[in-house]
Design a protein around this nucleic acid. Sequence first.
DNA 1: TGGAAACCCTGTAGCCGCTACAGAGTCAAA
DNA 2: TTTGACTCTGTAGCGGCTACAGGGTTTCCA
Lengths: 153, 153
Amino acid sequence: MRIGELARKAGVDVQTVRYYEREKLLEAPARTPAGYRVYGEKHLERLNFVRHCRSLDMPLAEVRALLEAASNRNVPCGDVDRIVHAHLARVKAKRAALEVLEAQLEALSRQCGSQPAPEHRVADCAILGELIHAAHGEACACHPDGEIEKSRG
Amino acid sequence: MRIGELARKAGVDVQTVRYYEREKLLEAPARTPAGYRVYGEKHLERLNFVRHCRSLDMPLAEVRALLEAASNRNVPCGDVDRIVHAHLARVKAKRAALEVLEAQLEALSRQCGSQPAPEHRVADCAILGELIHAAHGEACACHPDGEIEKSRG
DNA sequence: TGGAAACCCTGTAGCCGCTACAGAGTCAAA
DNA sequence: TTTGACTCTGTAGCGGCTACAGGGTTTCCA
């Protein structure tokens, strides 16, 4: 199986496969005399594993750690549990942050909308008004307590 | 006011201010004879505007568009509405995707956890088991219908 | 047999929004 | 005078790809 077929079967771009090889997520495969990569079923399984973890939004570094752990089948799997739980905690936190954000944006967009578009000029746009108020350090519809925290991630 | 004071007042890194200037989000300020940037209140307001939009997770390109719109105060503000609504739609979609993800990770982590850590070896780790099953194309606890979609963003 | 199309190779640069570093110059206080 | 805090420019790095340039190889069809 050459790289194109492997990529098609796993549903990824050819470039992505080469990228994973560079990043040591896939083993370097054998080559034909012309230098073409040749893959077997093992490679496809490993690639599917990686893609599955990626579909769960895990960073590649953690996928690498899982692969590492999976290869030492006789050691305790505390690392595996830790990786998955830490990732779950991150996802929870991010989802919660996005919920807040969504509420803020809805508050903002509710400020604007009664007037039909052609009559509605920038000078009276409530959205911009809110954002400019906020720039003066005043409380705004989206951040009523006047705090602007950094959003990371 | 020099760059350090401006940055402190806006709660950002000095490097970020210079970055925003390069990216045309802030006007290039006057300079002292030694080449130091000198800022006024207008710059602080504009920087606060940018940071407020960033706290709402807007991409800089959209912040730039908002700033552009805000400077033509006499035109209709359809662009402003469109930007904010499109951004809101993106945030909603992302939040929904994270909710699904969170459920998937919880399903995964529930597979593992009854056995005390030292006895729990990689070979019997249910989390890894699930992930490896998935790599074989079988349905797994996290993606029961067997589909793995690409997550973007 | 020839030529086009589809595939493959390497290497490099771009995306985003910063952050960090190197190596230099400037300024104020002790 | 010397320390230390500040500033300057330019460049590179993060993650996870994606895209492109500029070449070589294979396959298919006429």
